[in-house]
Write a protein that binds this DNA or RNA. Structure first.
Length: 462
DNA sequence: GCGCTCCATTGTTGACTACA
DNA sequence: TGTAGTCAACAATGGAGCGC
């Protein structure tokens, strides 16, 4: 059978390797292969099939390994792994749902721990039999002593049946909760919140009624992300431990007009049977499908060019700006990872000067043999002109990073597009177009790195 | 333009440490 | 043992992007 890996992001080799090793261990089969390669599958007419194959990993129980780019309808785990012969559909059950994190414990406040929890609660509505895995990918020296919040959050995950990978956990501390009373005491013994804050606390009112306090109101609605996660998973764990009575969220700060049917927490509350103090919970239904294959997004283009460059040339990326606002790091020559500044002058920005935002590109590739850095803006074809315009915004980025850390490199700015049925590009600012038929179109003045990468890819398939 | 999601930083204060 | 200074842990809030 084949392994199918569905993801919203660019698949990273280190993470794939961890997934394969986990599979081999979980399925009790031998494997070998240390250096893997990600290959775009081309049809005979040299168009892209929108499927990648991973080579270099061998396992007795796996014929082929494929990667497809997808989009989640609501919150989506980073990877779904299917073990089957045919292309997965939403009706198939994934073997694993994997959430990858690079949050180290230095940042383990409420956000790092709780915000990810709601994904695991959410996916159980669709795939209750799928094994849930939390994967710690970036091992930058584990902190000696985990925080109480971190311990509490991890124990909640363990109780839900989530497996933790890539991290050593002391089994004496990190163990699933076995009773609701144990859960209540664990939270009650943590350090109290500052005065004026609403602490998360579990109150067993009577044998059919548990109250959990926690603020859910934020900036005009139900969008308090850390607590959406915390209260979801606490409630899910209370159910998992067998409680059938009333779970009531108190001190949430919401009014009736704030609770809409499309809100993620409202949906989870419907499924788990959670009530909100003083409010009527609207009947809400979940989006029908948990995911679909991505066919529109600009990332289809940038992920493609990135993978072709990294797998068919010696070059690699030194900066990657992820969708949303996940922290991206700028990589210096000696391998340092720098967190980028967001504003040229933070105070001026806060005072209302929006010009202080430092515009950052979607991707920066390093062409060592040509001594060029290639700054890439990704766009859908229909927004081609926006992409070209945005190329002018990177002066501050160049001054602060590229010219400082790669002074001898020539800076090339280019747009990478996805979409349309066009097979030519007139604009010299556009370096590459992947059209919706999978046609690979190089721009008139495409960076040499793109030409080399595409040429090597075509040679591979000849 | 609003609502929602996601990833992130910020504010407040308890706890610890060094020192007199 | 009292106190100033610093760090770290708790919850609150900021802000970008996307879909409608």
């Amino acid at each position: 059978m084949n392994l199918w890996i569905l993801t919203e992001e660019r698949p990273k080799k280190e993470v794939l390797k961890m997934i394969f090793e986990y599979f081999a261990k979980d399925q009790n089969c031998g494997f070998f292969g240390d250096s893997i390669r990600i290959i775009p599958l081309l049809y005979k007419d040299k168009t892209f099939s929108f499927t990648y194959e991973v080579i270099g990993f061998k396992c007795a129980k796996v014929d082929r390994i494929y990667i497809k780019t997808v989009s989640g309808s609501s919150s989506f785990t980073d990877f779904l792994v299917f073990y089957q012969d045919n292309l997965p559909t939403v009706k198939d059950t994934p073997l694993y749902a994997i959430e990858e994190t690079k949050t180290d414990d230095k940042e383990s406040r409420n956000t790092g721990v709780y915000q990810r929890c709601s994904k695991f609660v959410f996916i159980q509505n669709y795939y209750p039999k799928t094994k849930l895995v939390m994967l710690y990918a970036l091992q930058v020296g584990q902190k000696e002593k985990p925080t109480e919040t971190y311990i509490f959050g991890t124990r909640l995950l363990l109780t839900l049946g989530v497996e933790i990978l890539g991290k050593k956990l002391d089994p004496n501390i990190f163990k699933p909760f076995t009773s609701i009373e144990e859960l209540r005491i664990a939270k009650a013994n943590m350090r109290p919140a500052p005065a004026g804050n609403i602490p998360i606390a579990i109150n067993i009112a009577d044998e059919d009624w548990i109250q959990v306090s926690g603020r859910l109101f934020k900036s005009g609605g139900l969008s308090h992300d850390p607590n959406i996660g915390a209260l979801s998973i606490i409630s899910a764990v209370i159910r998992k431990l067998g409680f059938k009575g009333k779970i009531e969220i108190i001190m949430h700060g919401l009014e009736q007009r704030h609770v809409g049917k499309t809100n993620k927490f409202v949906q989870i509350a419907n499924v788990l049977g959670i009530e909100l103090e003083g409010l009527t919970l609207p009947k809400a239904t979940l989006p029908e499908d948990y995911w679909h294959y991505e066919t529109k997004g600009e990332k289809l283009g940038t992920i493609f060019i990135h993978l072709v460059v990294e797998n068919f040339t010696e070059s690699y990326s030194i900066f990657e700006n992820h969708a949303g606002c996940e922290k991206g790091y700028f990589v210096t020559k000696d391998g340092q990872h720098l967190a980028l500044e967001k504003y040229a002058d933070r105070d001026a920005y806060k005072a209302g000067d929006k010009n202080q935002i430092i515009y950052i590109p979607d991707l920066v590739l390093l062409d060592i043999s040509e001594t060029e850095v290639i700054t890439i803006e990704g766009k859908k074809y229909e927004f081609k002109q926006n992409g070209i315009d945005e190329l002018n915004n990177y002066d501050t980025f160049d001054e602060r990073y590229l010219k400082v850390y790669y002074p001898e490199f020539k800076i090339v700015r280019t747009v990478v597009l996805y979409g349309s049925k066009n097979e030519q590009i007139a604009e010299i600012e556009v370096g590459f177009l992947l059209n919706e038929n999978g046609k690979l179109v190089l721009g008139i003045k495409a960076p040499k790195l793109f030409k080399r990468a595409i040429s090597n890819l075509l040679d591979y398939w000849n």
